[in-house]
């Protein structure tokens, strides 16, 4: 095996995520409200990911929030909140070689929310719920790509399928969690975020 795919896929993840984060942090300037709001949302998502209810079959009330953040605040904000979620929670639960790929996948979840907004500006909670459900599986498929490239030989479609199959149970659980949470909390969450989105814009100052 002359080419070490595991090496390249991991490095690619690192590099991609570094470039994206650098690019994100470089462009334009941010007001204190924007920055602190996104940071707090990221902390919130990270906490939701770290402290999951045992009474809830380990379902995480997080991915749908990242999706809705993207939907309300735009793709750029969604990407950041998504990417920061695994990074921050892994500071507490342990960073691993999986962190960059997780960041990329979560970032994509957020960015896709922004995309949805562009495609369907009037989308209701139903569409978001469907998107979240799909992301449950899509996220698993993306992460499997990394697992597969690092730990499985030979790299054929068949072995990838088997890797994916091995994680199918977890993926289903994630998708189910996303579905339930988005259905139950989506409307309320969207309302709250939209309220703060309005607040983020500095109000017009008028004289008396």
């Amino acid at each position: 095996m002359a080419v070490s795919w595991g090496l390249w896929s991991t490095l690619l993840g690192f590099l991609a995520v570094c470039l994206l984060m650098v690019g994100w942090g470089r462009r334009g300037s941010m007001t204190s409200k924007q920055l602190s709001l996104l940071a707090v949302l990221a902390a919130f998502c990270a906490a939701g990911r770290a402290v999951t209810g045992v009474g809830l079959l380990f379902l995480q009330p997080t991915m749908f929030l990242v999706e809705i953040t993207g939907f309300v605040f735009g793709a750029r904000a969604g990407f950041f909140v998504g990417a920061a979620t695994p990074l921050v929670s892994n500071f507490f639960m342990g960073q691993g070689p999986w962190t960059p790929w997780q960041m990329l996948s979560w970032g994509l979840v957020g960015a896709s929310g922004g995309l949805l907004k562009v495609l369907f500006p009037r989308a209701g909670n139903g569409l978001l719920t469907v998107a979240c459900f799909c992301w449950g599986y899509l996220y698993g498929a993306l992460m499997d790509l990394w697992h597969w490239s690092v730990f499985v030989r030979p790299l054929t479609l068949k072995t990838y399928f088997l890797t994916w199959l091995a994680g199918f149970g977890f993926d289903s659980l994630r998708a189910l969690g996303n579905l339930l949470f988005c259905a139950a909390l989506g409307q309320q969450t969207k309302k709250i975020l939209e309220y703060f989105h309005r607040k983020m814009v500095v109000e017009y100052v008028e004289g008396l």
Binding site: G23, R26, M30, L35, V40, A42, A43
Partner: peptide, 12 residues
């Protein structure tokens, strides 16, 4: 990447 790092620091 000033902004990304500051936001991650604040989140942490």
């Amino acid at each position: 990447a000033y902004y990304s790092v500051l936001a991650v620091v604040l989140a942490t």
